[in-house]
Design a protein around this nucleic acid. Structure first.
Lengths: 216, 216
DNA sequence: CGACCAATTGAATTGATTCAAGGTCCGTGG
DNA sequence: CCACGGACCTTGAATCAATTCAATTGGTCG
């Protein structure tokens, strides 16, 4: 959990594109980038909630496990995404590195300006979670997976190659299905010519329209 | 859609208890209470997003329908609840009266103070939606219904009587199941002695511990 | 009273899960 | 360098929970 400071603050690659993140950064004292190796915990449910975190590279999963061991992943955060926002003073969710991730802590500089950024952020997260509710509510396994892939496609932008750094069971716990069903749904998409499985962790979208259609 | 102004602003009953709502009201110019009869639309998806709304009495459902006609209800708002918060400048969801509801429009008075209230509100909604994600993700029909009833019980507080102003299909679209399954789940709870069905729209919780246990 | 809409209940079907058996990938050590 | 072991992924078959379709009951309002 040592601090690497791999990227100079000003030229942080995750930050370059998004004006909202730039605003956020300008209102905060960004700490050094901390590297979290595979499966390392960034914070756990029950921990005292504190600062916000900015993903510089890699992927972070935010999740909650119930008393009887079921897990629901609420989001995968990738470069440029902010996580760690909580309503109360205790984390309801935990955050872990999926694949080795670089994370920067954001500490408020100007409290008024920071609050404004937090509001924008909260609204954005609110909208995302609502989208997730729509996904979980009444969709079949294939539709869920199609939406998941569409979402990744949109977030990456400009390419038909999708990397899946998380394992099948992570995808399953995000979509509210089992990992076997994820596997079968991938096969269905493959068999219908919509995607190609380049490797276990990389898929290529061959027919984006078909995917969109399936996503309902 | 006429304005009744049934309650004087100062003595609004929905407002009496909750300090956060009081703060909200003090930062806004509350309009008159508008009465929306059964199934009346307060705003529809696609409408320009505008003010926030405070429920004075009755129940409002917030929902979204997909292109192919499936509906997901994201929340039932009752006295004291605020709805209408959107990330963008267009409503992603629509709001309708479930049972005849009185709704007050909240317009910002002091923009800085109002923004602070909106932040608190956004965080609260964020937490609620996340709870909904947990509910939809990996729960069985009985567990979903148990949680739904627990939630209503907590929101009302102090009584074992729960009113269900919405119809079964509304509950179904909130829980992500069919209305027949809602009906069967209610029967299961009844048969196990956890609830009694006083009438079609009122149930009584006989065994709150049993309900809690079922809610997982 | 009759018509209509909501809710309940039953029976058949469907889709996802569970359980079980390989298969693939990758790192480690001989 | 190759063999081995373990973790993850895929696939198949049986099971189960929820849906769908259909019939009936119950409640409400003109």
């Amino acid at each position: 959990m040592q601090s690497h400071n791999l990227h100079p603050v000003a030229a942080s690659p995750a930050v370059a594109n998004d004006p909202r993140i730039n605003a956020m950064l300008s209102q905060s004292q960004p700490g050094a980038v901390t590297f979290y190796p595979l499966d390392a915990t960034i914070f756990a449910q029950g921990d005292e909630s504190g600062p916000l975190y900015l993903v510089e590279f890699g992927t972070v999963r935010v999740s909650r496990v119930t008393a009887d061991g079921r897990r629901q992943i609420t989001s995968f955060c990738m470069a440029g995404d902010v996580f760690g926002l909580e309503a109360g003073d205790e984390h309801e969710f935990s955050a872990e590195s999926v694949d080795g991730a670089g994370v920067r802590v954001l500490r408020p500089r100007d409290s008024a300006g920071f609050a404004q950024c937090v509001l924008a952020l909260a609204l954005r997260h609110f909208a995302q979670v609502q989208k997730h509710v729509l996904l979980l509510g009444r969709l079949g396994a294939n539709e869920k997976l199609a939406r998941f892939l569409m979402d990744l496609l949109e977030r990456r932008g400009g390419t038909e190659i999708i990397d899946l750094p998380m394992q099948r069971s992570d995808i399953a716990d995000y979509l509210g299905i089992t990992f076997e069903t994820v596997s079968r749904a991938l096969r269905t998409l493959k068999d219908s010519g919509i995607i190609r499985l380049n490797s276990i962790s990389q898929i290529e979208v061959l027919d984006e329209d078909g995917l969109t259609e399936l996503a309902a």
